[in-house]
Write a protein that binds this DNA or RNA. Structure first.
Length: 373
DNA sequence: TACACGTGGTC
DNA sequence: TGACCAAGTGT
């Protein structure tokens, strides 16, 4: 062990002063000094789980415009909420969001619980989100530890223990720092610091309000923290998707079962997904007998835990009835149907093959790009 | 504890 | 192209 210089202790006030000068202006944040709206804080926190600020922005605006209150959201049909969520990913969040809105509107009189423990009991609200809402919306001195905070705190204290083992230590160290006043600003300041200066790669330590008390900065190894356990490799699964059109131009849409992968979402009819599937044999899993033509090429999509390679089959002038859970939808209505991204890719693949790159229906599957901030 | 669960941007 | 990672939760 080499001797290290003794560093001063980090002070919340130094971070808060930095935050007062550099805070990000985000649609869900209250102006300085004003009280935050718990509904907006909650909605944004759920959307921001594992999702970037730039991606969330347009979704947040659409949700707030369409459902301005938790009561309005609770009154909406689940399928409308899922369709509005389409493209954001982790669809269990949308199902839990809806369930949570119904609990808050139904049994809490439309008011969110104002403590960490109370919030933690809501569907879709885990330890991070409960702490974030408690601090930001209700001024509770809670430690909201997300990926940003894990990075800031492991660097600040030079924690070499890999994640997730280090989580308890990080949480304790964070709680030590939370100030009695402005705990909500402190939580957001920590996240802003992690999102800007204390970035995963090439952190801007020279500009950091905590540069003089940061162990990793003193050592010069900030970029190597936090350490993480090695990730398991991602297997490849295969399957087939079926695109069917009737003579009147309607297409077959299938609603997936309520739980599991893409639960409750609309999309193309899929075979079961497995490690290896014979494309010829895939026809046996078609929604109904028809002249299924295999479209050249494959659709490649990366999920968190596996890679999916989809073969797409198409049939036109179909006369079959829609199976249970499926329905025929006009191409005009397709724009209203929310497809997860992998389904969007499969639909585009079929439409381009059948009708060329200028196919009008392709517009329904063009990604709604977030505007860069 | 470990794994299921989406997507897009960046390097 | 691939690896990483982003305001995590539920089981």
């Amino acid at each position: 062990m080499s001797a290290r210089p003794i560093l001063p202790s980090p002070q919340a006030g130094d971070l808060l002063s930095w935050y007062d000068r550099h805070r990000r202006r985000l649609p869900w944040r209250a102006p300085p000094g004003e009280a935050a709206d718990p509904y907006r804080v909650w909605l944004s926190e759920i959307m921001l789980q594992q999702t970037t600020v730039a991606t969330v922005g347009p979704y947040f605006e659409r949700f707030i415009t369409r459902w301005p209150s938790v009561e309005a959201l609770a009154a909406a049909p689940l399928e409308d909420v899922l369709a509005a969520w389409a493209g954001l990913g982790y669809y269990a969040r949308a199902r839990n969001l809806h369930a949570c809105a119904r609990v808050v509107a139904g049994t809490h009189g439309g008011r969110f619980p104002d403590t960490e423990v109370g919030l933690r009991a809501l569907p879709g609200v885990g330890p991070y989100t409960a702490a974030a809402i408690a601090a930001i919306a209700f001024g509770r001195p809670a430690a909201a530890v997300d990926g940003n905070v894990e990075r800031v705190i492991t660097r600040l204290h030079g924690i070499d223990t890999p994640l997730p083992e280090a989580k308890a230590q990080i949480r304790a160290r964070t709680l030590d720092l939370v100030p009695e006043d402005r705990p909500g600003d402190f939580a957001q300041a920590l996240m802003d610091l992690g999102a800007s200066l204390c970035s995963p790669k090439r952190p801007a330590c020279a500009l950091c309000p905590w540069r003089d008390c940061c162990v990793a900065n003193a050592r010069g190894d900030a970029e190597t923290l936090p350490r993480r356990a090695a990730k398991p490799e991602r297997p490849t699964r295969r399957g087939a998707a079926f695109w069917a059109e009737r003579g009147n131009g309607t297409v077959l849409i299938h609603r997936r079962p309520p739980k599991g992968l893409l639960g409750g979402m609309d999309g193309l009819w899929l075979t079961p997904l497995s490690a290896d599937i014979d494309p010829a044999e895939a026809r046996a899993h078609a929604p109904f007998p028809a002249r299924w033509n295999r479209i050249a090429g494959e659709v490649d999509h990366l999920f968190t835990h596996f890679r999916l390679r989809l073969t797409v089959f198409a049939a036109t002038d179909v006369t079959a009835f829609a199976p249970t859970g499926s329905r025929w939808v006009s191409k005009a209505e397709l724009a209203e149907v929310g497809f997860p991204t992998v389904m969007r890719k499969a639909a585009q693949h079929a439409l381009r093959a059948l009708h060329g790159p200028g196919a009008e229906a392709l517009a329904a599957f063009r990604r709604r790009r977030p505007t860069r901030t």
